[in-house]
Design a protein around this nucleic acid. Structure first.
Lengths: 314, 314
DNA sequence: AGTCGCATTGTAAAGCTTTACATTCATGAT
DNA sequence: ATCATGAATGTAAAGCTTTACAATGCGACT
């Protein structure tokens, strides 16, 4: 390899390259190398800011490894997600990073299962039916910490605005909520569990349910920040102020949480790091290793949407 | 073509396909077809919610046309954006949709200019130096409408929180702001133009500048919703309430604008439609047509962050 | 009945890069 | 001086699909 090529030869080649506008054709490259140097990232909803920061982490790690990321928006739609499964089978991507609980489709192809190691990593949500290597936080502990904080502030009547029933995160956070109440010897009322779906609108709708309650909760733990904002927004329009009349805790610490009025008390997930860690796991799997799943720490961020319960209201 | 293939032959082939787990290899396909059936979408910041909805529109139109979209986050970084230019040259994408003013790099390759028609469409921002086919709104008129609304509410002292100086949108919206003032015979004070950069933090910083003004504006027109939220958030912490003490108008009508407290008066851009229209333009260019640029209508959305100026304060 | 044309099927090449292998050359050692 | 070893260069094939072209066959028309 010493001389590699003579200087003048190199020069002539480079000149020719410039003249001809020669560039590598990545299709031919992929074909011969039998890999695409691309990883697929499937997000359930690209409009949801929660995923953006994760994508940032993924992107950073991917470009460091010289990989391209192909972002697919499944819209939580089965058919669309199945279309993305094809991307792996077609060789358009070497592996997939799923930002939602993986559908069965990801495991329905022998080609996928033939490999002892599946080039799939799940971030944030881990599926109980089809376990993959995953990056998560301890949602139950986080929810428990959030609710315990409210209890510490003197709240005894604490509602929970849940996520969509089918989602694993919803169940985990609900369990954490229940555990915190139980540990404090508080009652776990069924009518205090308000249904939501992680969307702003469902937060608004939840406020109507709250309004209809005869014994009003003094605090509410929301399954994510968006629903919390929807709830607070509706409350504001009804003359109910946060945290004066009710304390609200969110989940995720999305970008706008700290600029909201009131600034939102919430649980921060290290989203960029989750994305980066997920990508590193995937690279490791593609390199035929079998890395263990990762659980990252969460952090309770105290801001202005929660307050100590005035003694008079106890 | 009548019989095409006999039923039993078809059956046998299909059986073989199943047995062998045969799937089309897209690399080979791209290589032979000399196109990738993929379009590149370059966003300056995937974490910015403004772009999400545009992406949604692009995605919808693309999947209808059987195309894959490859989303690249340039991070407003020249080097990274130049890397994406390669995607076109490499044949990894058949065309590009740019969600920011295109850099010179997009036009630096003969291969690109050789084609009379460049497979590039710009959405939202159109570059004056390197004009491409584009989808825009009339930013100047929109800004003018927003400021005129404030004037109609009795405001005479109206500030403007600008975007980053290098951005074309900043200039257009600033022009609209000035025009509205001029048309109303109002003074256009230099110290009422507060610098921003479309980020929440710059909105916060702008509030400090506002605080330092001796003659306080009674209204402010912000170049986008994020800076408006930053401004309002800081104001709130300082005991200045919107719209009681100052009216605020944003721009973009991002997802959270209506759930903000107060709900934001803002200019709505038809983002999904802008994305869809951009994709249609690109498809048309790829099909070797030369479609004209498109200008879509905007809409002034009146919410709670603006109010009629009390006569006492005139 | 022969020829022409249409339709279908089959075969081969093109598309561009990478990898593997063979060949050549040079250098060092026996 | 010859052989062996290593490096460097050159050649060919592989990777998978699509497209173009040739060939085959059948039916219809003259």
């Amino acid at each position: 390899m010493p001389g590699l090529v003579a200087a003048k030869t190199r020069e002539r080649v480079l000149a020719a390259v410039l003249q001809t506008n020669y560039t590598l054709n990545s299709a031919a490259q992929s074909l011969r190398q039998r890999r695409s140097n691309t990883v697929l990232v499937v997000v359930p909803d690209i409009g949801n800011t929660f995923f953006s920061e994760i994508l940032g982490g993924i992107e950073r790690e991917a470009s460091a490894a010289g990989l391209t990321i192909l972002i697919g928006d499944s819209g939580r739609d089965k058919v669309r997600e199945e279309a993305y499964v094809r991307y792996l089978l077609n060789g358009r991507a070497d592996g997939a990073l799923l930002l939602a609980e993986p559908l069965a489709a990801w495991f329905g192809f022998p080609a996928m299962n033939d490999l002892g190691i599946k080039p799939i990593v799940t971030i944030s949500e881990v599926g109980p039916h089809h376990p993959t290597t995953a990056v998560t936080i301890d949602n139950e502990a986080a929810a428990c910490a959030a609710v315990s904080h409210l209890i510490g502030q003197g709240h005894r009547l604490i509602a929970h605005l849940t996520g969509p029933v089918t989602n694993i995160l919803t169940r985990e956070r609900l369990n954490g909520y229940r555990r915190a109440l139980r540990d404090a010897g508080l009652e776990c009322r069924a009518d205090y569990q308000l249904p939501g779906d992680f969307g702003v609108a469902s937060g608004r709708a939840a406020f109507d349910l709250y309004s209809a309650l005869t014994l009003k909760p003094t605090a509410i733990f929301c399954a994510n920040d968006e629903t919390a904002m929807g709830f607070i927004s509706s409350a504001h329009h009804a003359g109910i102020e946060v945290p004066r009349d009710i304390s609200v805790v969110g989940f995720d610490d999305i970008h706008f949480a700290q600029s909201y009025i009131p600034a939102l008390t919430t649980v921060r997930q290290p989203r960029a790091e989750m994305g980066a860690a997920g990508m590193r796991l995937l690279l490791s799997i593609i390199a035929n290793e079998a890395p263990p799943s990762i659980r990252l720490p969460f952090e309770l961020i105290l801001r202005d949407s929660t307050a100590v319960l005035p003694p008079a209201r106890l």
